[in-house]
Design a protein around this nucleic acid. Structure first.
Length: 591
DNA sequence: TAAAGGGTTCCGA
DNA sequence: CCATTTCGGAACCCTTTA
């Protein structure tokens, strides 16, 4: 029962002596509130698993249903084919941040080194042997490896090395997709067709080029789609190459023994559930897909199912808009109303800064808090206007605070703005509208004008009647009326839900992301440099521009004067700008 | 019966 | 010396609403 609860150790790590390491981490952390909370969570997962087990037992008793389900699966398997027309490569710099630091400090090369201090950003392979991982708190790393050397983060340095890395890769695929500073996906099909080199030789040459230019090593994987390439790149890491041949047999063979945990998008929790039900490798999933179908909701099922069959995106992804911007901070415990409010003010300012930098406005605010018992709660609110002003955000934030009725100490507070829209576009729209005059008179801020227009209600309604319904109040005068619901309802049944009612039937309705792609505007605001790009509705042009921006140092990175904001976040911020998650929607293999 | 709203879960680094 | 465990974004799911 005293099973270590730490999540830094999934199969992804693949380190010997993992049990010992788990034990050390466990010893170092037992008794804390954090630990207690983790145990609770673990229990919840376990009870979810046992519910699922019961469900599966029933399923196996029902021959009729079994027959039906297997048929559905068989049809699904017939429907797709693993497309091996294209050749993708995934390049990944080895332990990137640390490697960059070691360039300047070669004497540390054979010692355990980590970038970051309170939370570790990257560790070198010496430190990894001891079990040190990214996102691990510094004190745990110290317990695992007392001699570890912490090096502060120098983001600018990594950026410039990354530029060199990307420039080299661009020669082979101008449209490459970079996910963060140290990773990129390349579609090598054209290059290889033109030059007649074989993929392995080509990629080895590229790796050499990278080394010559940066003195750093990169690992590489090759396969018929992005997912396979990424998975392959981990096989011979660090400083290695692995090629999955361009045939369905090779792909299936490659995946066969692969732990499902390796699939991007399957993380700690999903792994626990899967292994609890004895799904360990991709082959398990393929063989018993009908069970998977019974247990998981449609989306989750599809994602896992297709991934294990090696079906994934094999074309470049189109740029998608960011959906929300958020800001959250951890601090030492606070418990008075005044302190809460001050935090809201502070976070609101930070959020407003971020939003203004991105030139976004939004009208859906969420307040997030974490209690000192590590419980997370949030409340959200549909605003009656679009905004990115600290003052307004703070006012709404304090309303949410009231609604939440906090009566215990907290250690984190955050604000998230959703329903984003482009600030400039909003302003443009506002100029040509009926409301302009009114607002000029009432000398309100420009973005307050913008904020009341172009909202959903505006787009939906063409009749003047409903436009009049758009509310034009300032938050000080009239606060949105939100009836505070009492909390009695939810909590307990939440976690156990999703076991019963799943409705695999309605696939047609699930295609929300197609709707996002309605009308392509002729010009586009580049999220990196903020210039308008005349892309004539052509995504290639847009992508090229964005890629160029990324690699020409135009990325604006906050010069962090807050020691609070850690390195991992900066890493993340950049990468999420460029590509949203791999596991998104499943239409991509249908073409 | 589909969409909107609100809240939670999960992932990755 | 002590104790100390992140943050951002999207997917997902349930409930309410029109």
């Amino acid at each position: 029962m005293n099973e270590p609860i730490f999540h830094f150790y999934g199969n992804k790590a693949g380190v010997e002596g993992a049990d010992q390491i788990k034990q050390t981490i466990d010893d170092a952390t037992r008794g804390s509130e954090y630990y207690k909370r983790q145990q609770e969570k673990r229990q919840q997962v376990l009870s979810k698993v046992s519910k699922m087990q019961v469900e599966l037992e029933n399923y196996h008793k029902n021959e009729q249903k079994k027959k039906e389900t297997k048929e559905i699966i068989q049809n699904k398997v017939k429907e797709f084919q693993i497309n091996t027309d294209r050749i993708w490569a995934h390049f990944d710099m080895d332990m990137f941040y640390v490697a960059c630091e070691l360039l300047d400090k070669p004497e540390l090369k054979d010692k355990p080194v980590a970038v970051g201090q309170s939370i570790i950003s990257t560790a070198n392979y010496v430190a990894r042997k001891y079990g040190v991982r990214s996102a691990m708190p510094g004190f745990v790393a110290k317990k695992l490896c007392p001699d570890i050397i912490f090096v502060p983060c120098h983001f600018e340095k990594y950026k410039s090395v990354s530029n060199i890395f990307m420039t080299i890769l661009k020669k082979y695929d101008d449209n490459l997709e970079s996910m963060g500073l140290d990773e990129a996906n390349l579609d090598l099909t054209e290059y290889i067709n033109n030059s007649q080199v074989d993929p392995a030789t080509l990629c080895e040459n590229i790796r050499k080029d990278i080394f010559i230019a940066t003195q750093l090593t990169a690992s590489c994987g090759v396969g018929p789609n992005k997912m396979i390439a990424k998975l392959a790149s981990e096989i011979n890491k660090p400083n290695g190459l692995h090629v999955v041949e361009q045939s369905p047999t090779a792909v299936l063979g490659f995946l066969e023994k692969l732990p499902v945990r390796k699939i991007p998008g399957i993380g700690n929790i999903t792994e626990q559930i899967l292994s609890g039900l004895n799904f360990n490798t991709c082959k398990d999933v393929r063989d018993r897909a009908d069970e998977l179908y019974i247990i998981f909701t449609p989306k989750t099922f599809e994602y896992i199912f297709y991934s294990c069959w090696g079906v994934a995106r094999n074309c470049h992804v189109e740029f998608e808009d960011q959906l929300s911007i958020s800001c959250q901070r951890t601090f030492s415990s606070i418990s008075t109303q005044k302190e809460f409010e001050d935090k809201v003010d502070y976070i609101a300012e930070k959020l407003a800064e971020d939003m203004q930098q991105e030139e976004k406005v939004g009208n859906h605010l969420t307040l997030i808090i974490k209690t000192c018992k590590f419980e997370i709660r949030n409340k959200s609110l549909q605003l009656n206007q679009y905004t990115n002003q600290a003052k307004q955000i703070a006012i709404y934030g304090k309303q949410l605070l009231k609604i939440m009725q906090l009566d215990e100490p907290i250690r984190l507070l955050g604000l998230k703005m959703g329903s984003l829209a482009n600030e400039k576009q909003m302003q443009k729209q506002s100029i040509s509208t009926y409301f302009k005059k009114q607002f000029d008179k009432s000398n309100s801020l420009e973005n307050q004008i913008a904020s009341n227009l172009g909202s959903k209600s505006h787009q939906i309604s063409e009749d003047g009647d409903s436009i009049n319904k758009v509310q034009l109040q300032q938050p000080e005068q009239s606060k949105p009326e939100i009836i505070s619901e009492d909390e009695a309802s939810n909590i307990s049944n939440q976690l156990l839900s999703g076991v019963n009612s799943k409705g695999h039937q309605y696939q047609a309705q699930q295609q929300s992301f197609q709707q996002k792609q309605q009308a392509q505007p002729k010009s586009f605001l580049c999220p990196i440099c903020n210039n308008e790009i005349d892309c004539k509705g052509n995504n290639t042009v847009l992508n090229k521009h964005i890629d160029r921006c990324i690699t020409t140092q135009n990325v604006i990175v906050e010069q962090s004067d807050e020691s609070n904001k850690n390195e991992i976040v900066q890493k993340k911020k950049i990468s999420s700008k460029i590509e949203s998650k791999a596991q998104k929607s499943f239409n991509f293999f249908k073409k």
